[in-house]
């Protein structure tokens, strides 16, 4: 056996694996790039500060001005409220499942989280519609949409919290217990900070997921062209819904606004991702920086 001779078949296998992996990457990236490209090119036409800071109040679909401010504001508030409810709730559920949960109850919780994970968003919307609006008699509002978005974000957030907490080595918990630190302080001061970068990333993925949801807001926020800063009463705008409505219109002016709104939505989600990465980097164990 020579140490310098590499068999030709192995070289061939290596090369082909390399090419296949490269090709798979290119194939996966093509749709992504083309979507981004299309949205940027078509959305750039109307996308400006006027668009960002004006609503559609008293604007006809055939007008070339008008903006998405009412929709941006609505989406930020709806998603913000959903995140405000979901983040503490999913943190506590995740901590319960990993640190305390044994037996029936935790199995049941895990099961329902799995089921909710696959829940179609329209079903979440219908559920809130039947319970909150038709059942309890509340009006359509941003908050109703927040409730549906909470249902959608919760399983993602719980699952990612759970996975990140499981990754924290038992040796760290033991190190803390051995110092005479009680369990709950060990969790809040040792386990959570160690898992934080991963948890933040998971939460942001959850937020990014619900930000683009159209079906539940379609059923729940009502119809308005005006700015409504109060998510608890009166209909509120929503960015994905705005994209949907404008793109359904036959007028080119409306379609252009739809593209600009789509671009806005993508930018918002990218900004969120960027912030998540910054937080994760800032909070990461210093040695790995």
């Amino acid at each position: 056996m020579s140490l310098t001779h590499t068999s030709p078949t192995r070289k061939l296998k290596d090369k082909s694996a390399y090419i296949i992996a490269g090709a798979a990457f290119v194939i996966a990236i093509i749709p992504l790039i083309s979507i981004l490209w299309t949205v940027i090119v078509k959305g750039a036409k109307d996308f400006d500060t006027y668009f960002l800071f004006h609503s559609m109040r008293n604007v006809a679909e055939s007008d070339s001005f008008g903006g998405a401010y009412h929709a941006i504001l609505g989406t930020l508030e709806q998603v913000g409220i959903a995140a405000l409810i979901t983040i503490p709730l999913s943190l506590m559920v995740g901590i319960y499942l990993v640190e305390y949960g044994r037996g029936r109850l935790s199995q049941a919780v895990t099961f329902f989280v799995d089921v909710m994970m696959g829940l179609p968003s329209i079903v979440a919307g219908l559920f809130i519609l039947s319970v909150w609006i038709l059942g309890a008699g509340f009006q359509a509002s941003g908050f109703a949409a927040s409730l549906a978005l909470t249902i959608l974000m919760l399983p993602v957030a719980v699952r990612s919290t759970e996975e990140m907490l499981k990754l924290v080595s038992p040796a760290l918990r033991e190190a803390s217990y051995a110092l005479g630190v009680p369990k709950w302080r060990t969790i809040t001061k040792v386990v959570l900070p160690t898992a934080l970068p991963g948890i933040v990333t998971g939460m942001m993925l959850g937020i990014a997921r619900i930000m683009g949801e159209t079906a539940p807001v379609l059923l729940l926020v009502g119809v308005t062209q005006s700015i409504n800063g109060n998510p608890f009463s009166e209909p509120q705008g929503s960015l994905p819904l705005f994209v949907f409505n404008e793109s359904q219109n036959s007028l080119q002016t409306a379609v252009d606004r739809g593209w600009a709104a789509a671009l806005t939505l993508i930018i918002l989600i990218m900004l969120l991702n960027l912030i998540a990465r910054l937080i994760a980097w800032w909070k990461a164990p210093a040695a790995s920086r």
Binding site: S169, A171, L172, E174, A175, S176, A178, L179, G180, V181, R185, T186, K189, V190, P193, T194, L196, K283, P285, A286, A287
Partner: peptide, 23 residues
Amino acid sequence: FQRPNPFPTMSIYENVAAGLRLN
């Protein structure tokens, strides 16, 4: 313990102070 297990999110100082601070 057998394997050194300093707290990864903490500095040298914080590691040593951990038992007191956490209590």
